[in-house]
Design a protein around this nucleic acid. Structure first.
Lengths: 225, 225
DNA sequence: ATCCGCAGCATTGTCGACAATCAGGATTGA
DNA sequence: TCAATCCTGATTGTCGACAATGCTGCGGAT
């Protein structure tokens, strides 16, 4: 149960919101194939709703860049290519670096303790060569999620958790992220947490940026071998 | 004529898009007061359209955080308080710093020349004590806009130009930005451009971040005197 | 006098139908 | 044979009406 999927906590009172959540999950996890065309009537029939709420859900999916729409033509699920993926990592480097700095300045002590406990849990997973669990449960994104939330900058939280992390998950579900970097990543995570616990914002930012840059390089290396 | 308002170049074939543009401008410039409640029937009547396209426009305005919606209650224009404004500047510092770094690495020479010409124009404005023109034409945002676009990272362009810059304009229109910082800002702009022209990405990022941080401090000083 | 419950009203959410627009294929002319 | 054109089919955009939900004011009970 990852904290990153916190949208299900609300009762989703309106149909459009519920369809939005369902479609987002389906797109991220591959249930709706990337690049496929979306026909409003058939999707409305599949979900058993009218076109009105479906269109609103599509608008929201468009706003988080999971589908592309052209007027009078229709909507397609995005097809993430390598360039866009690397662009996302540039944005993440900048944003999460700032998030780590703010977290070092303002994250409550209790949240830092929870973060340490989470890392201890991850350490146990990796020691048991349990990589699959680690990445399948998206412990990595959970770690990043908590740091971003720890600083309390709502706009930062919004951009990262509502937009970019879904793309990251989509990439992992689609290309089947192998986890040879899990051990290094965990080590980098620990350094970041140490800097945050020491309230060293500048170091936390530097370490987080280096960590994300390393992930980016690992992906770039796998993308164009 | 600022490049930042490039949405009017398209014919806006669909009504919802046109209404979205109109309402965005009205909210940013104060035509629709901040914090006011939005009634779908009265607004639809005012614009002479049905509620369908209006609702889609509202969804898009919600996605760029210009209006807030609650299910079964309605939509309100956002009320920007000082905390959120400072949060935006933190995000801008991170994002535009990265943008300056990328611009230094990849911006075409021609675009750099145009940037220099723009700064020369601004220098002339300020030398004539023509501050009002400088800020009224939003030369500042135009400068930032060009640098963000120069790097070619589409996601960076999207976040900054479609979300954050509108908020910045809204703040200026609402609180009447005085321009005692215009002279300093211009000097900082010139340093950034010099670093980009020298292809020094690290320096460009550092200068841009310091520039935005200085703007943030100036605002914070005026906010709680 | 204050608080709770209820009814009425206004607003939002949802639906089905109509009009406008675009994509693709058949047709015709050079 | 190739290209341009028109037509057809389907899909999207828009509209008005109905249903569901939340807010507001009043009446009554404590």
């Amino acid at each position: 149960m990852t904290k990153a999927s916190n949208a299900s906590t609300e009762p989703s009172s309106t149909i459009a919101d519920r369809i939005f959540d369902q479609m987002r999950q389906a797109i991220v996890e591959g249930g709706i194939p990337a690049g496929s065309k979306i026909s409003e009537p058939v999707l409305a029939a599949r979900y058993g709703i009218s076109r009105g709420p479906l269109r609103e859900a599509l608008r929201r999916l468009e706003s988080i860049k999971l589908v592309e729409r052209r007027a009078n033509v229709g909507a397609r699920v995005i097809q993430l290519n390598s360039d866009q993926l690397l662009e996302i990592y540039d944005v993440r480097e900048a944003l999460e670096g700032m998030a780590a700095r703010i977290a070092a300045e303002r994250m409550p002590e209790g949240a830092i303790e929870e973060l340490k406990a989470l890392l201890a849990h991850h350490r146990g997973d990796i020691a048991r060569d349990d990589w699959q669990t680690y990445f399948q449960e998206e412990g990595d994104l959970d770690f990043h999620f908590r740091i971003v939330q720890g600083g309390g900058n709502r706009r930062l939280v919004d951009i990262l958790c509502n937009d970019l992390y879904h793309l990251a998950r989509m990439y992992r579900c689609q290309f089947g992220m192998r986890s040879e970097r899990a051990r290094d990543a965990l080590k980098e995570h620990e350094l970041v947490v140490d800097a945050i616990a020491a309230r060293d914002g500048e170091l936390a930012e530097w370490l987080m940026r280096r960590h994300i840059r390393a992930s980016r390089e690992a992906i770039a290396r796998r993308l164009v071998p």
